[in-house]
């Protein structure tokens, strides 16, 4: 190997080791923190304009009586200071106080049953009832829209996707926790990815 090639190789691999993680980190600064079980409060506008509309005044956090809403810090990049709900830790109890105080319309005033924070998805490989380990209907019992958003089919939970508000009460109550921290029923915030019509 020539010296020139060797120097090139060393410099290339060194810069790759430093630059690639840096690039990945830079990308995470503009990537939305919303994912499975990490939800925006009720009435939130799509993620496309959330960071632009929210002025990080923290009023939704201060009025939340259940302390469900927490604030992201600068590690979330441009989403620093925006509110987020960790569904499996403290879910949203749908008191609708936060939508009353938002000064910028980032959380729009909506009624409780119109809330669409996400959709509950049952992981049938983990769910005790679906796996026939035992008869558990915890998610059905805690759901605020029983028989509307969640129904039982031979005691197995079925989600009615049109009616599920995505509050995360079922996720919080679910007794099954997988190794990666996910529950047998999780909230997927699919409404956060809707496009905005200008």
């Amino acid at each position: 190997m020539k010296r020139r090639e060797f120097v090139k190789g060393v410099a290339g691999s060194l810069s790759a080791t430093f630059l690639l993680p840096a690039a990945a980190r830079a990308l995470s600064l503009i990537k939305s923190p919303v994912r499975t079980n990490r939800l925006r409060p009720p009435g939130a506008v799509p993620e496309e304009i959330f960071a632009g509309k929210c002025i990080r005044c923290g009023r939704c956090v201060e009025v939340c009586p259940y302390r469900s809403i927490s604030l992201l810090d600068i590690r979330a990049g441009v989403y620093a200071g925006t509110p987020i709900i960790a569904a499996e830790e403290i879910p949203c109890y749908l008191c609708m106080k936060c939508v009353e105080v938002c000064p910028t319309g980032t959380l729009l005033k909506i009624r409780q049953e119109e809330t669409r924070m996400g959709i509950a998805i049952v992981n049938r490989h983990l769910c005790y009832t679906w796996q026939s380990f035992t008869i558990c209907r915890t998610c059905f019992d805690v759901c605020p829209y029983k028989e509307q958003a969640i129904t039982l089919d031979q005691l197995r939970p079925i989600i009615v996707e049109d009616r599920c508000v995505g509050c995360g009460l079922c996720t919080h109550a679910c007794p099954v926790t997988a190794e990666d921290g996910q529950k047998a029923i999780n909230i997927e915030p699919i409404h956060a990815w809707e496009r905005v019509r200008w």
Partner: peptide
């Protein structure tokens, strides 16, 4: 609720001018 970015005293709301302007400009609504 809030602090000097946005203050809510009962139903009386204050929004800091620059923050409000930025929010309106960026969201274009």
């Amino acid at each position: 609720q809030g602090w000097y970015q946005s203050f809510g005293i009962g139903k009386l709301w204050f929004v800091s001018p620059l923050e409000g302007l930025e929010s309106l400009l960026v969201s274009k609504q």
